[in-house]
Design a protein around this nucleic acid. Structure first.
Lengths: 225, 225
DNA sequence: CGTATGTTTGACGCGAATCAATTTTCGTGG
DNA sequence: CCACGAAAATTGATTCGCGTCAAACATACG
């Protein structure tokens, strides 16, 4: 049993904890990182903040996003346990990061990146994380630029099912607003599309609305465009 | 004076050429690469092709894109001289690459990547290229997901002006169809948006339609959203 | 149990896509 | 160098998917 610390900005520099976290991820501990626990919607960093650290998610989900001056938001990615994010080319973060659900991350100090890159395993891992992020971004650009609302939702559900390793039911850890801002839609359209898919018998959305049962994955895959 | 070779698949393994190209890019030659010259619209690789090489553009413009089953296309990026693209995490290319204009690239064999990563300079360069590509992708997702047609065009023009280092006139090296497929629009909307910006006095589109004169960069920047 | 928040549903309008027709530019051969 | 045909770009009329505005409903939390 574990007690979740919800105190804001709880930090630890506990090597033992780190090792356990690293091991939990099936990875060797590489360099020193500090654990940070986040409440839902708590901000990890904002666009323009100095990029002193990059992060790896260990629990929960973190969303990274960009804003337009009038508040329109685009969530470029949701980061799940094991995912690395926040590696920057420049001195500042180019996007903001908040917890989409209660989450825990490990922070790696950026000035250590140089040292860490000498650790071949870690270097390869960071480069791998960048490549996967880029791949994901490319797929997402195809979705944003060329898919219809129904196709976006279908793609999203299939994607979540894969990442959450949920056989045929997905418990969405983020709000409809987050989904909308990720897919370039409004919450109304997200809701209507889910209803439409349910009407077609492709999915089931039991009350609580957080869980989506994928009744016909083949149909969903066909809807991916 | 220089003669452009348009013979398909012209390859060289000429170290001297490589060095000159590298120096022209202000970079040290790192590892061996082969030069490849491409005609306009010639394919460099297709989605699903084994990723044996990655590339750096030395002349012209290369577009990388993904397709949906019904032919809808999303161009995720245009690559200009100096840009590195085609680095893959997996065994296959996740997108296709074609010349948007006549172009020349240097191909680096992928199996050499491991060796090249020991070259600290090159490693840093590849990682830098990945980070920049990701940064660009994130900005582009914001554009695709949240900007209006006029805002997309305005952003695109400002972006091209920066990359082509054209003071206040941009010679667009790609077709309207390429622009449309990059911005998630149709060619009709691209054309209408350009006309609209011209009507507002923000830009000038002299006959030939390839050159865009940016008359009011401040207004363009304001239209970026 | 009541209030706040998140989600769904409905009516309507608008921005961009589609369909269609010109117009302009560019490559090719006479 | 000009004429021709093909390809590219523009313009116009219309349609439609999704956004906006608004209200009802359900769920979660104190």
């Amino acid at each position: 049993m574990q007690i979740v610390m919800n105190a804001p900005a709880a930090r630890h520099f506990d090597a033992a904890v780190l090792s356990r976290a690293a091991v939990a991820q099936g990875r060797r501990p590489a360099g020193v990182g500090s654990v940070r626990t986040l409440d839902k919607d708590e901000e990890l960093f904002a666009e323009g903040d100095p990029a002193v650290s990059f992060y790896r998610v260990t629990q929960g989900v973190v969303r990274t996003s960009k804003l337009l001056s009038d508040g329109r938001r685009q969530i470029d990615a949701f980061h799940f346990p094991g995912d690395v994010f926040g590696v920057e080319a420049g001195a500042e973060h180019r996007f903001s990061a908040e917890a989409a659900s209660a989450a825990t991350v490990i922070a790696y100090r950026r000035r250590d990146l140089d040292d860490l890159l000498f650790d071949e395993t870690f270097s390869r891992e960071v480069l791998g994380a960048m490549m996967h992020a880029l791949e994901r971004a490319q797929r997402h650009m195809l979705l944003l630029g060329r898919k219809s609302a129904i196709e976006k939702i279908a793609t999203f559900l299939v994607d979540m099912a894969e990442r959450l390793a949920g056989a045929d039911a997905v418990e969405l850890p983020m709000s409809r607003l987050d989904i909308a801002d990720h897919l370039g839609l409004t919450i109304e359209t997200v809701s209507r599309s889910l209803t439409e898919l349910e009407r077609k018998g492709v999915i089931d959305v039991p009350a609580s609305r957080r869980t989506i049962v994928l009744r016909d994955k083949a149909a969903l895959a066909r809807l991916n465009g």
